[in-house]
Computed example of a mutant assay.
Amino acid sequence: MSEAPAARKRGWHSLGMALANRKTAFMLIFGFGSGLPFALFLGTLYAWLSEAGVDLETMGVFSLIGLAYAFQFLWSPLLDRMDIPALRKLGKRKQWIVLAQMLLGAILVTLSVLNPKTDLGWFSLLAAIGAFASATQDIVINAWRIDIADEEATIDVLSTVYQMGYRMASLVGGRSASFWRHGSAGRKPIC
């Protein structure tokens, strides 16, 4: 019985030590940054559409935006070969991370104020571009994780912390999306 609490305490200590490393802490942030759009585009989006009264056939078409995640391999080689002139000095990976984050932020804020029933065309276009930007971000963060791995921040620790952030974002995105979109005053969460 006394071994379990001691092992748990060592586990928390190991996590704290890992997060003290700058690279690992960034992986946690990037994991959260990758998981949130994924949760919103492939989960909460359907709740928004359903709440707005969009018919099921139209909602089914929105499932195609998930293909951006399935076909990442098609454009991932381009990300190694192309630079963004204004962001070139950030480096090969970080320039794409910054661009994807800015694009995702703008798209998610815009989607939150659109009415899917009346602005369905814009809503679907922005959701597709957002899924593409999110998938691009995943590609670049995965490549950056491999690039920065060393003896102190090993690839398995970086991957574990990334997944922890990703899962936390999925929980937060799924649970709080209705509050983000409509405010919490007197509303029942849709997820």
Rank of each mutant, 00 (worst) to 15 (best):
G33R: 05
S176D: 03
A153Q: 05
T136K: 02
M82N: 09
S178V: 06
A149V: 05
K188D: 14
L78M: 11
I141D: 04
A70H: 11
A7R: 15
H182F: 14
I97C: 07
A39T: 11
Q95K: 00
Y69G: 01
L56K: 15
W48C: 11
G16Y: 01
W144N: 03
G165S: 05
G186P: 03
V109A: 13
I155R: 01
L104D: 10
G173H: 04
D80L: 04
L99F: 04
N21W: 04
T44V: 12
A7F: 08
W180G: 12
F71I: 10
G31T: 05
F30P: 04
M82K: 13
E152Y: 07
G33V: 04
G121Y: 12
F123P: 06
Q137V: 03
L87G: 03
F41Y: 15
D156L: 05
A47Y: 13
G35Y: 00
G121R: 12
V61S: 14
L99I: 02
Q72M: 06
M59R: 15
T136I: 00
I139T: 07
R10P: 07
I129S: 08
S159T: 08
V140I: 02
D147W: 01
A70R: 14
L171H: 07
F41A: 08
F132C: 08
A4S: 12
L158T: 03
G11L: 10
L28S: 00
F30A: 08
S124Y: 15
P77E: 08
N21K: 05
M27S: 04
L103K: 08
F30K: 02
G91F: 01
G33A: 12
G35L: 11
L40D: 09
K23L: 01
V54T: 09
A52F: 10
S159W: 02
M164C: 03
T24N: 00
L104Y: 01
L104G: 10
E3H: 11
F123T: 12
V113K: 13
A100C: 02
P5E: 11
G60V: 13
I107S: 08
D147F: 02
A149M: 00
L120G: 04
G183F: 06
A7S: 13
W180F: 15
G105I: 06
I97Q: 12
F32R: 03
R145K: 03
L67S: 06
I107E: 08
G183V: 04
Y162D: 00
G35P: 09
A131D: 04
G11Q: 07
